[in-house]
């Protein structure tokens, strides 16, 4: 009897966590997987009972609009995350050198993170407005252009404007984590390298950067999971348009699911989007493990 009880103890102790995950993650995921195989319309709840198998997925995979949005989402993720990393690294290195007022700067650096994405979207929408926006007015006043640049309409500029807003909002996440890495960095290897005659670039390239990479991949992993928050920015700034030029999976899913009420089809798209996020996260996680192994850390 006692043996049995001991055998079950770990499961008992784990049960709160298992139950929480079951209710918060597993059941909603299973439910949305099921609804992605129905013609479920929000305004016609009975449609949830009709099972159509993989029809939503088949329709999706043969839809050009979906694949364009899929490709744009990958482009958005790749460019935004890399830019955030590079700029965050630069900011962290600069702040690390400061000896006076560092705390104040660190706090100020986190301000953009505190803005809600909707607010950031509105802010940048008006900065990039072609007629009354401050950017065009500044460029015209400085004599850099005498025309009106359609930042939110032009094909590459639309995506660039949105990525700028996203990078402005989230670079500090990288900066904070990388700065933590810099603070935790041992001084001995740096001093040894200097004694051995390494120049600053060599010190950065062969000592500082490899040490920071695990922190960078932790930041990448976190960001790849919450980057979908950028939906609000895209929705406010361009709504995915014009003519689908800035359409990403999140704007497409919201339109199909809520505006068109086709939640079954939207859930099929959301599943693909989730798999994409998982793929990015898995990739960064493997890179994190490799970076830690390179640094001699635990796997």
């Amino acid at each position: 009897m006692r043996w049995r009880a001991e055998k079950h103890t770990p499961f008992l102790l784990l049960s709160p966590a298992i139950l929480t995950i079951l209710f918060v993650v597993a059941i909603p995921l299973a439910f949305s997987l099921y609804t992605s195989m129905t013609p479920y319309k929000l305004t016609k709840p009975d449609t949830i009972n009709t099972f159509v198998g993989l029809r939503n997925y088949v329709r999706l995979f043969s839809d050009d609009k979906f694949w364009w949005a899929f490709g744009r989402t990958i482009l958005f993720l790749a460019v935004a995350l890399n830019l955030e990393f590079i700029l965050g690294l630069g900011i962290a290195l600069l702040i690390n050198r400061i000896t006076w007022g560092q705390r104040t700067l660190r706090t100020m650096m986190m301000f953009p993170m505190m803005f809600s994405p909707i607010l950031v979207g509105f802010q940048f929408k008006y900065i990039f407005n072609d007629n009354i926006g401050i950017l065009n007015n500044a460029l015209q006043a400085l004599g850099i252009t005498d025309g009106s640049i359609a930042w939110l309409v032009d094909k590459p500029l639309g995506m660039i404007s949105i990525i700028t807003a996203e990078v402005w909002m989230s670079t500090s996440v990288f900066a904070i984590l990388l700065l933590a890495g810099l603070f935790a960095m041992p001084r001995d290897p740096l001093e040894a390298a200097k004694v051995d005659g390494c120049n600053p670039w060599q010190v950065f390239r062969h000592i500082t950067l490899p040490f920071l990479m695990p922190f960078a991949f932790i930041a990448m992993t976190i960001r790849s999971l919450d980057v979908a928050r950028a939906y609000d920015i895209v929705d406010v700034m361009t709504g995915g348009g014009p003519a689908g030029r800035t359409e990403v999976l999140w704007t497409l899913i919201a339109r199909v699911g809520y505006d068109n009420s086709k939640m079954g089809e939207a859930n099929a798209m959301a599943y693909v989007s989730t798999l994409l996020s998982v793929a990015f996260t898995y990739y960064f996680f493997t890179k994190l493990v490799a970076a830690r192994r390179y640094m001699g850390g635990a796997e």
Partner: peptide
């Protein structure tokens, strides 16, 4: 018309 009209809504 302004170059950005394709992105305009009522507020704009």
């Amino acid at each position: 018309v302004p170059a950005g009209v394709m992105n305009y809504l009522w507020d704009d």
